[in-house]
Design a protein around this nucleic acid. Structure first.
Lengths: 304, 304
DNA sequence: AAATGCATGTTCGGCTTTCGCGACATCGAG
DNA sequence: CTCGATGTCGCGAAAGCCGAACATGCATTT
């Protein structure tokens, strides 16, 4: 084993060209240097310096040692510098987002964050709002963008623009002449968010109002999958309108079409918030939140 | 500042999940852990652990610290392992070779060395034998392959196969019917090794025997340049035969041709040796020497 | 709801180990 | 032999550590 001090002293000996000179330059007694090196060589079981006449020279092993170990000191200094640098972010910031965010303004947000935080690594996790809430609490992520209803207690939150949900169907089926009623909607299989989510529950309540055959409601944890199912005519679906607008217009975006519906079939907007625990991550939280708010608005403007 | 011990303790706290558990696992009193962390946090001026209730959790900074600093320990362990590994070479071996070697068996030698020394970095320097000798003495290289006449005192040396020198001319000029005399050779500008080298001096002596116009003798520190000059018809030249044989047969090797000469125009062979200082680099020296001897023979066989 | 128990982190006095200093011994080169 | 360098030894200072007492938070009991 060896410590940082050992490296520093070896380096100083080489720079100064001898034990005595190194001692003087580092404010130590010569005997201290001698003892340290002797102990270090004994510990490692190798010879660091060749004592030839009245001078010492780095041995082959010594040169090797210094080459490598010198980097350790440099790394340590860099760590200290980065760690004690005031202001700004550093290190890894763990961001958790709901899938809707991925398909709306996440890219814009990351691009905003990238400028001015070149040295910061962002670690993304995509999950349901409930899971994101848990991860926030358990400190598995630093900042989360999730549904307001899942917001954990004590977290600082900033509301984002409401996300409108719309009914969609494959472009292959003919557009109805009149806005659809709940009963008409219930006549199709419906695909949307997972069971347990607010939209799912709301749609379930909505469809159960309709008489006749019991409605078929499928949930999927992946909104991409929902859109694909809708495009493939598996059923009609409820997805965020901004997500469809953001979809590749030559691909998926072209293959599904919004269904006009009567007002009573309207699904409540999704209300997302950027959230973090102030006492734990206020710095990263504020930065990410600001970026999210800005990206959200930029994205909204882009769609209009 | 912080030491390796600090990192180890922080890591142990995280692994064990608390100060107390970490203390137990590392054979320390719990108070020692507490004190160390407090001191470390004070020194760095940042909070490493969030004290929440009866448990501590890595703070944002703490996570960052551990992420980076943990690598320091890993690097240190790797250094120790490499440094204390018995037998074999490790680290960087600095090899100095004369240019002739570059164009004969150096590649073969390096390929031989590569197997069995995958982790060793070889650092090559190409220089004149005199400079190589100086570098050996001054410990700027570990092993040198240089002319025997430049061998420094006290170095262990192993002779390699003698390198034959030959007279060469551009393939563009017609081949003479009879072996050339010294006087005939002296009629052309001659290009060869640098001034100050043994071949240069010998050739100079040789040519001065001839009567008539004073001979023109050019020296070049780069044998490649010499060969190019000869190929371009700038003059005739003296270069190692093995070097010409090793030259790309479709390129330079095709554009120059050996001149038959009378025996008195024969230039003395170059005698190279692999050399090192035993007390300083016997391990690397033996390995490199063995590789050089073997590569030399392999290369010689290849040319025959 | 208050009391109790348990587990954890923090602080403080005293002890042990490590580290460095200074003086002297030792060694090699000139 | 002398000079300039490294190695060795005893002493003192500082750091590190231990153990105990103390404070706090959470869970269970009363």
């Amino acid at each position: 084993m060896f410590g940082f001090r050992d490296i520093e002293i070896v380096r100083e000996i080489v720079r100064a060209g001898g034990f005595r000179a190194a001692a003087q330059r580092s404010g130590l007694a010569q005997s201290a240097i001698s003892t340290r090196i002797a102990a270090l060589e004994k510990r490692l079981g190798i010879v660091l310096f060749d004592r030839v006449g009245r001078q010492v020279r780095l041995s082959s092993c010594g040169r090797r040692f210094l080459e490598e170990a010198d980097r350790l000191i440099q790394t340590r200094d860099r760590i200290i510098q980065e760690l004690t640098r005031k202001g700004g972010l550093n290190g890894t910031v763990r961001i958790g987002v709901a899938e809707t965010i991925v398909h709306t303004f996440l890219t814009t947000m990351l691009n905003l964050l990238r400028v001015g935080h070149e040295t910061v690594r962002f670690e993304l996790s995509v999950d349901t709002s409930e899971q994101l809430s848990r991860k926030l609490v358990e400190d598995e992520i630093d900042v989360g963008i999730l549904l307001r209803e899942s917001l954990p207690k004590g977290a600082v939150s900033t509301p984002l623009q409401p996300i409108e949900l719309g009914w969609y169907a494959s472009s292959a089926i003919p557009l109805p002449p009149e806005p659809l009623t709940i009963a008409e909607l219930a006549g199709h299989p419906v695909v949307t968010f997972s069971k347990g989510t607010t939209p799912f529950e709301q749609i379930e309540r909505l469809l159960s109002q309709a008489d006749g055959a019991p409605p078929v409601l499928h949930g999927s944890a992946s909104l991409s999958t929902v859109m694909h199912l809708v495009a493939d005519g598996f059923g009609i679906g409820v997805v965020p309108t901004r997500m469809v607008e953001a979809a590749d217009p030559l691909g998926l975006g072209e293959r599904i079409r919004r269904l006009p519906t009567r007002p009573e079939a309207h699904i409540q907007n999704l209300q997302f918030v950027a959230a973090y625990f102030h006492e734990r991550n206020h710095k990263a939280g504020e930065v990410i939140t600001a970026a999210a708010v800005e990206a959200d608005q930029i994205d909204l403007k882009k769609r209009s």
